[in-house]
Nucleic acid binder design. Sequence first.
DNA 1: CACCAGGTTGACC
DNA 2: GGTCAACATGGT
Length: 210
Amino acid sequence: MTAKQKKTGLVEVYNKLLGQFGHKHWWPADTPFEVVAGAILTQQTKWENVEKAIKNLKEEELMDAEPLSEANLEKLEELVRCTGFYRQKARRLKDISMFFFKNPDILEKPADELRDALLSLNGVGEETADSIVLYAADKPRFVIDAYTRRICRCMGLEGGYPELQSLFEDSIPEDVPMYKEFHALIVEYGKQFCGKKRCTECIIVKNGKM
DNA sequence: CACCAGGTTGACC
DNA sequence: GGTCAACATGGT
């Protein structure tokens, strides 16, 4: 805790979630590029389905920027069909792969530059861009997803993506492993207790003072 | 059968 | 500036 950090209670939430769920070892991947591909595939889909698609791509030797960017579109669609939205995802995978093939050192660039470049690609919004910045490039950008918004709402914290992201980044230490773990814990917690309509057994709000 | 999942986009106020 | 249907499969 440095002096300029906001007292939002988010650090306490982090500790509580860590105590309840333990380390999640999130986003397992053999290579940074696999995180990139996974970031597209996981949009609005269960990770379980993404794993199948990743397995399919690996079996076809496509899990790398060059081969994936050159893959046959119809074939790609079949390989990623299990993740839903398969036509746009196949197209987007080829696009982002081409980008990484043409910019092999992009993950080494400063976080802001990387993020802006990613956002310029079709199919890459703020969450996907930040997921790549954090989990593929290992740079400190807090990822805000639907569960994070719901949990924040429960805590009386509202705002758009940039507002919530700044809130987290100003409230907790700028630590990449912690950013990764916290987001993973929020998703784990959200899957169990923060449904779209219900919010039961909420350890964050229910147990008070957070 | 209805609803949801580790979102993004483009159209329309 | 915000809201909303469309995108699509697979699991409860």
